[in-house]
Design a protein around this nucleic acid. Structure first.
Lengths: 130, 130, 130, 130
DNA sequence: GTGGTCTAGACCACC
DNA sequence: GTGGTCTAGACCACG
């Protein structure tokens, strides 16, 4: 499960790491009971300071996705999958709501917005009627 | 044309101001040749640091939406409306693209996403036949 | 509102700080809308690294007790008092439950435990019948 | 005498083990002269690092509860029961004192605290007249 | 001035 | 080996 980090992004590195782990859990790539990479390992792999990884892990711990296992590392919690899916869904809803607000204030209709989505959606993964 | 600012928002105040002016121009509430409020006035009206207003105006000047009128203040440029509409559209496209990226990585189809939009779209302003 | 920190304690400094602020809010010494000391100020006052204070504040932010006010500092949220009181109460309950568990496994009765409390309770602040 | 260990607990595993042995001795489940399980056996039984068991035993040896019996293992000392009861009592006192401190700073009276205890005390094992 | 992030490097307890 | 905490010092965006 490769993790990628973009130091030039406006979103903090520790959040990029946390987000990707959330998605990995939500997507099933990481299951309950799995150990995530050690702070040190991940920090060298990403060429990032260990503290940055610690911060990402702590955010996930406080989210209830990871928990420390004394002396062994950080482990994915039992209901991490549920929480990660919920979080992913919630974030998506927020984005949709923002988008709707902006579209409305720009005077677009819902059909206009859907056309924009059709235009941007990659042809390969389309399923609607065409 | 009332401007609202939320100091608790993650988006910078100067950007909130600039955005609202862009929308005001795009929406016709501000026309070419109109004077925008003086830095001083706007800063007291919004209880915001004058530097913050300056920064917003600078951003708009650099965008070609405002231009300084010696001794009078900042005035809306001739083709501000066009530029603001373009900018508004461009921002919308960016948002849509981000949303599509996130939806794809969450395993949604384009129809799923459109349903989310239907769900969030305020009933009052709906037009699409369905 | 003086904050005290004990570097020799097993409880982390950042948590000592956060705990004391929670109590200050629960006790009314800090009200909604109040600004807490700046990270830099508090760090010199406690002769502690700024990062340590940052960490305390972030924990309180994530608890919903503080929120950042762009460029002005960290401010006590509207319902911080409620949250802090709830948190204080919850902590007390946990402690009581731990104590009960330990008392039971030591073969004590509830009356025994209450006698221990009477013995330890400072005479000055007693209200029960005696 | 089954020992349980929770790797996810904040209290160190070696301390969990030691505590449970202290209680076993105080409660009479382990008597003077009894052999405790070998480090190896206990470590496999608890799926715990042998060093962790060693550390627990060392702590008990230093407490005067266990003593090494050349070639045979660790054995419960003659006055272990007395020491364990004393230790149990002392810990209880500490906990009560902590609780009292916290209750005071939360503005509770001694009666309030006793009510909390009544609320949390399992009904089955109640004896006090009320 | 404010907080936010990151690096570097240290020390600790625990397993 | 693991994570947890702390220091020191830097840079950034924002007001």
């Amino acid at each position: 499960m490769p993790i990628r980090v973009d130091a030039g992004s406006p979103v903090p590195i520790y959040e990029q790491i946390a987000d990707q782990l959330v998605f990995a859990v939500a997507g099933g790539d990481l299951a309950a009971g799995d150990l995530v990479p050690s702070v040190r390992d991940l920090s060298v792999q990403l060429t990032v300071n260990p503290n940055t990884v610690v911060r990402a892990y702590q955010q996930l711990e406080q989210l209830g996705v990871l928990e420390p296992l004394r002396g062994r590392g950080m482990v994915v919690t039992a209901d991490a999958a549920r929480k990660c899916k919920a979080r992913r869904k919630e974030r998506l809803r927020e984005r949709v709501d923002e988008l709707i607000r902006e579209a409305l204030s720009a005077g677009l209709t819902d059909d206009d917005l859907k056309q924009l989505i059709d235009a941007g959606w990659p042809a390969a993964s389309r399923n609607g009627k065409r």
